[in-house]
Amino acid sequence: MDLPVYTKQQLALRNGQDKPQIWVAYKGFIYEVTESRLWRNGKHYEHWAGQDLTDEMPDAPHTETVFEKFTIIGVLK
């Protein structure tokens, strides 16, 4: 799988505010969550889109399998 590589700055723009796309990163991969009702306006509970959520997962009420329903669209540099 040959995925495009994005910087943290590029990821940060996909926060549901600056650009229409809503992306989040987890364990080096970037996920497209624009269509998720749980990420409406780029916010999911106390989390904001456009960020790497890897370090925040241990505090989540769900496991990392939640990412399986989203498409991987890139790699975080």
Rank of each mutant, 00 (worst) to 15 (best):
T65Y: 02
K69N: 08
L76W: 10
E56L: 11
L38R: 06
E32Y: 08
L76S: 08
Y6P: 05
N15Y: 03
T54D: 04
W48L: 11
F29T: 04
R37P: 06
T7G: 12
H47N: 09
T7Q: 11
V75M: 04
Y26W: 12
G42D: 07
E68P: 00
G42S: 11
D18I: 04
V66E: 05
G50V: 01
V33E: 07
D59E: 15
T63K: 07
D2M: 10
M1Y: 12
D52A: 09
R14V: 01
T34H: 01
E64S: 08
R40H: 15
Q21I: 00
Y6S: 10
W48F: 12
L53Y: 02
T34F: 01
Q51K: 11
E32Q: 13
W23T: 00
G28K: 14
M1Q: 13
F29D: 05
V24D: 03
D59A: 12
Q9Y: 07
E56G: 10
V5N: 13
D52Q: 08
Q51C: 02
G28I: 13
W39N: 05
N15H: 07
K69T: 08
D2I: 12
W39D: 03
I22E: 00
Y31P: 01
D18T: 06
K69V: 09
T7P: 11
L13E: 10
Q21F: 04
E68A: 11
I73F: 00
Y26C: 05
K43Y: 09
I30A: 03
W48M: 06
V75C: 03
P58K: 03
W39C: 04
R14W: 00
I73A: 01
E35T: 10
V33W: 04
K43E: 15
K69Q: 14
Y26P: 00
L53H: 02
F67C: 10
F70C: 05
W48G: 00
R37G: 14
H44M: 07
Q10H: 08
S36C: 10
V5L: 14
F70N: 02
T7V: 11
K19L: 14
Q17D: 07
Q9R: 14
I22K: 00
H62E: 06
E68C: 03
I22L: 05
P61C: 09
T63R: 07
V33L: 11
T54F: 04
I22M: 03
I22S: 00
K69C: 03
E64D: 14
R40F: 12
K27E: 14
S36T: 12
D59G: 06
P61Y: 09
I30N: 00
E46P: 07
H62Y: 10
H44S: 10
Y6Q: 07
W39T: 02
